[in-house]
Design a protein around this nucleic acid. Structure first.
Lengths: 219, 219
DNA sequence: ATTAAAATTTAGACGAAACTAAACTTTTTT
DNA sequence: AAAAAAGTTTAGTTTCGTCTAAATTTTAAT
């Protein structure tokens, strides 16, 4: 079975929303895909015909096993291409998302298997998100945020909360990336901001909003 | 200006046909693109609106300067991706055309510049076709075929007549590729076939049809 | 338990890119 | 130069993915 770019984008968006929200609604999807609710309804009917999801009018939508499989194969392609763009073509991590959005729709399965081998079977993309294997299996990712980390507990950055370029650019400027070791020196009750220490660097202050969007693994 | 995949494919096909045929006709295009003449007429009107070509009803079509520029940028992308697929991902040269057909429509100009640098600014794709530079400049390729090569004149293979997988597979099987050194030992008047010698290998016979589709440069 | 508000779907339309069948031009043949 | 053949365009549909406006259903509020 072969799917259009629009169809693949819907499946991917539904998968993403399904992670936090068991039942995905028409309006959520319209917002996520920058389109109108009426368009979403149309497409949901088509995808339901194709057995990629179960659609209950007025009550939202859920991916079938086939739908999940497709979603994971697209996510695999997206994240492998992101890894390629950063590791081989030297792109900054905040510049690769849009390009990978296009590359992920190239359909050859052999291309992806060879790309995976060429890259050395990476486990995670440049933002720390895990890369599903060819069977769709994926190791789940740390869900402790920097904000939740206890004071004086050394930790390593494993991911980010979202892929917005405003967030990624800010982190790059502050010299924080995947693998950065840090610890919280002080927490300010007033605004929830934290003072963190990175090896060899002066203390820096991160807002609560930012700390919530940095995923860490205690060491 | 941004163009659809269908539009880009038309421009590319017109460019290709324009190489041999000054004026490209509706029927030729329909055959090349595996579509119907009526569909071609529709698209030619649209592309003419967009100033990519000059369209004279009933008399055929010619690319404008803008159209040529676009064609060369697509060809550049196609050939760089083919080079990547063969050199980095170890694909056989007869397996890369279809994948590159998809990759060539990914739009980021920065991606292509970085890919070019990553690959070491290659001059030709795996079939020996020259890769246009970012300005659209392209060194023209040898147009002497093996069939035209004098007997006992050593030469090096620089390209192939077309990209059909039947041709490429045959050449691969006979151990002939870009860069192969060979010379003609004997020419058979009866069927136009030639006996060629490749270093350290026994004589092999190539049909006239095949010899016409191998491009060579005398040494 | 009505009513008001929010969310969702239906109906009807549109542009892109394709198609078939019919009409029209150009070219070739006689 | 007229007729036949070949090539091309026009007219009218189709499918995909989108839209707006109107109708409907669900949820929240009084």
């Amino acid at each position: 079975m072969n799917f259009s770019i629009a169809e693949e984008n819907y499946i991917k968006a539904i998968w993403r929303l399904q992670q936090s929200d068991a039942n995905v609604t028409t309006n959520e999807l319209a917002a996520e895909l920058q389109t109108k609710p009426a368009s979403v309804t149309d497409m949901l009917k088509r995808l339901s015909e194709k057995k990629l999801l179960n659609y209950a009018p007025y009550y939202g939508v859920k991916l079938t096993a086939d739908g999940k499989k497709l979603a994971l194969s697209i996510i695999r392609k997206h994240r492998l291409w992101e890894y390629f763009l950063v590791e081989k073509l030297q792109f900054n991590w905040d510049a690769v998302h849009d390009i990978a959005e296009e590359l992920e729709h190239v359909s050859s399965p052999e291309l992806i298997e060879r790309l995976d081998a060429f890259l050395g079977y990476p486990k995670a993309d440049p933002h720390g998100d895990p890369i599903p294997d060819s069977k769709g299996r994926m190791t789940s990712i740390s869900n402790l945020t920097l904000q939740q980390l206890p004071e004086a507990q050394p930790a390593i950055v494993t991911g980010v909360g979202d892929q917005s370029s405003s967030l990624l650019e800010l982190l790059r400027q502050k010299n924080i990336g995947i693998g950065t070791k840090l610890e919280i020196k002080q927490r300010h009750a007033f605004d929830g901001s934290v003072e963190i220490k990175i090896r060899n660097q002066p203390l820096i202050n991160l807002s609560e909003q930012l700390a919530k969007n940095i995923l860490v693994k205690p060491q």
